[in-house]
Design a binder for these strands. Structure first.
Lengths: 244, 244
DNA sequence: CAAATAGTGTCTGTTAGACACTATATG
DNA sequence: CATATAGTGTCTAACAGACACTATTTG
């Protein structure tokens, strides 16, 4: 007969070797969007590691268990490596997992959606030869790594939904932006023209924006008012969705 | 000088040992809700393993990398163990992760929300001494394992949101249900009375339900019509939310 | 019959969309 | 001035909430 160690939590913890538990490989996949030249764009990186080395993909990474305190921290760390800024919007999107998505083994990807103004990081990105904005509409032209196309499509669809009931997409614009800019972005995301008066009215009624007093002078017509978002706007949802 | 193996994907895969990559421990935490005796209830299990052995918690489990083909499959497997049925509604909720949530090590929980009619599994659950429905309102009376209270609250809040813009909560009712039942469930989730006429009208206009022709005779008044959901109802969202 | 619950008819105030209008810039 | 873009005034059809009404059961 074996002499048994008492089954206390302390003894359990003492003997706990993580690697004795077979557990899927975990990666973090941030999908960073911006709005540039009238198009939705996504940040892609040329992969320097297997699998799918050499293909374009998301700026993925593994949790650094020594230093990362949260899953978000991992996402922010990977985004910082490629942009040198912290995006003003970051939200967990979905976790994808199956035995073959990564060829190697059962693996799980926790995807995040992030938004940023391209002006905030354009200069830094241009110093990197392996990193660039890619128009969402032209993604069909390239083969993306692993299941990253599926993840991007999932993020894109969620962002379309958010355009219907919030002004979260505004985080893909500069800190100061105009209502016509925001409306055009929403139109790109939703895929149809929106009635100007209604769009402006719902945002005005919700009191989501602050008039900076400044005007954007470069439009070749009447200058548009520059606004910035109130902090409350981040979590505000309209009672009524834009119609699809 | 070392003779280097060519850096091909094949060589990479050949040498790929998962356990050489330190990766967080991953568990799946399904939150199964039902509606019984006018209350929202959640399925809890007395934990037979550390950590927090002996406390009540969610019916958690690990991905079985030999047999589970998806993350959902793991959630369904754990729920089946405790209910012997497959719930009609299952949706990924959120992934929680940090270095201390599980005391042992960096760990990640992928939580799922599931809904079921208690009638579908009541008989089986009553055969298990370690499993029971717990009213959400009385969760304060017990200490839950690890961060399961936080996960349940997160799921509860998401379900409240869904009550505002969908009839997904109906999956917590029997396959055939009445409009007053559904309205009461929504009132519990949202935490306030709803105008009867408006509630009925929005569901009628959306054509989400099928009149079974049957009536529920036990209400002590005029019998209520029994409906079942169309499959389209699962993904339908109203253009206009119920007001909070 | 009264009591209880289910379900409807209808009025009213609010509001989204339509669209024509005004406002302010450039050249 | 014309052109371009920003932003507003206002009408109307649709509809959510209020609430009183009818309908159908039990006892």
């Amino acid at each position: 007969m074996l002499k048994k160690t008492p089954d206390t939590e302390n003894n359990f913890l003492k003997n706990y070797k993580r690697h004795e538990f077979a557990t899927p490989l975990l990666s973090i996949d941030p999908v960073l969007f911006t709005y540039r030249f009238g198009q939705l764009r996504v940040l892609l990186v040329k992969r320097s590691n297997h699998p799918d080395k050499g293909l374009w993909g998301l700026p993925s990474g593994f949790v650094d268990m020594e230093h990362d305190e949260t899953l978000e921290a991992t996402a922010l760390r990977k985004l910082y490596e490629k942009t040198h800024v912290k995006p003003p919007y970051l939200e967990q999107l979905y976790s994808f997992g199956n035995p073959s998505r990564d060829k190697c083994a059962w693996s799980v990807s926790i995807a995040y959606t992030a938004l940023i103004a391209h002006q905030e990081c354009q200069a830094y990105i241009e110093t990197l030869s392996d990193t660039q904005w890619w128009s969402y509409e032209t993604l069909d032209e390239i083969k993306l790594a692993i299941d990253h196309r599926q993840i991007i499509d999932f993020a894109r669809e969620r962002l379309r939904q958010k355009a219907l009931y919030s002004i979260v997409p505004a985080y893909a614009l500069s800190e100061k932006f105009t209502l016509p800019e925001l409306q055009h972005l929403h139109e790109v995301l939703i895929g149809k023209k929106l009635p100007k008066k209604s769009f402006r009215r719902r945002i005005e009624q919700a009191e989501l924006l602050i008039d900076t007093g400044e005007k954007q002078m470069d439009s070749g017509g009447r200058p548009a008012t520059l606004y910035r978002m109130k902090e409350t706007a981040r979590h505000y949802t309209f009672i009524r969705n834009l119609e699809e």
